[in-house]
Amino acid sequence: MELVFDKVTYTYPHRKQSAVNNISFTCPGGSICALIGPNGGGKSTVLQLACGILKPDTGKLLCSEKPAYLPQQERIAYSFSVLEYVLFGRAPSLKLFETPAPSDEARAVQCLNELGIEHLSYKRITELSGGELQLVRIARVLVQDSSILLLDEPTDMLDPAHIATLITMLKREKQQGSIVLMATHDLFIVQDYADYIIGIKSGIQFLCNAKAQCFTASNLEMLFDVSMMPREIFIPTIP
């Protein structure tokens, strides 16, 4: 199980500047990799390249399995039920004319249960709060049963209790040998749970190493262009 970026460069159509430039890193199986950097730095582009939504202009990308991807934001046109919305995550394992079987529905309910939101199954997605919708979207990623999870700001809009549930789930995925590559601005999650850090700024890779080597105030200051200071904050307890 591996996700490898080898000197990957990508430029969006009709743009002059590359969104990501010569990026190289490896995410080994059974690891949580954090993609950090300022807004507009290229984190989401890296995830979309890893997912196969975008094709690299140059360089090589090796992904041992079809990943499950959580986009940063999603436009919702129709108010599907939560269960149906999560079931769409089963699409990669279904054939062209196939509709989800009861076993697919059971797996979707199980994923909702793991995130503590089974009670929302028959609600309409347009009736959910921002945090609830985020959890439902994460359930749609989980239901794909992929060993490579690409998460774009997964903690966005989640309260501390739901962040704790999410991190517990991510730790379990890691223990099972999966790769979690997530773009995030929650530095406490990076500090406590990431194994590897990839720092990107203006499409250029600044950091790439095991957390112990590169998660320092000076590196973060260089990456975010702001002075950093360590201080104690309240964070949810993860079992």
Partner: peptide, 14 residues
């Protein structure tokens, strides 16, 4: 129905 999801989600699923 799947095609009515956000385009990035659709492209990641099929």
């Amino acid at each position: 129905g799947l095609l009515a999801l956000d385009d990035r989600a659709v492209r990641s699923l099929i």
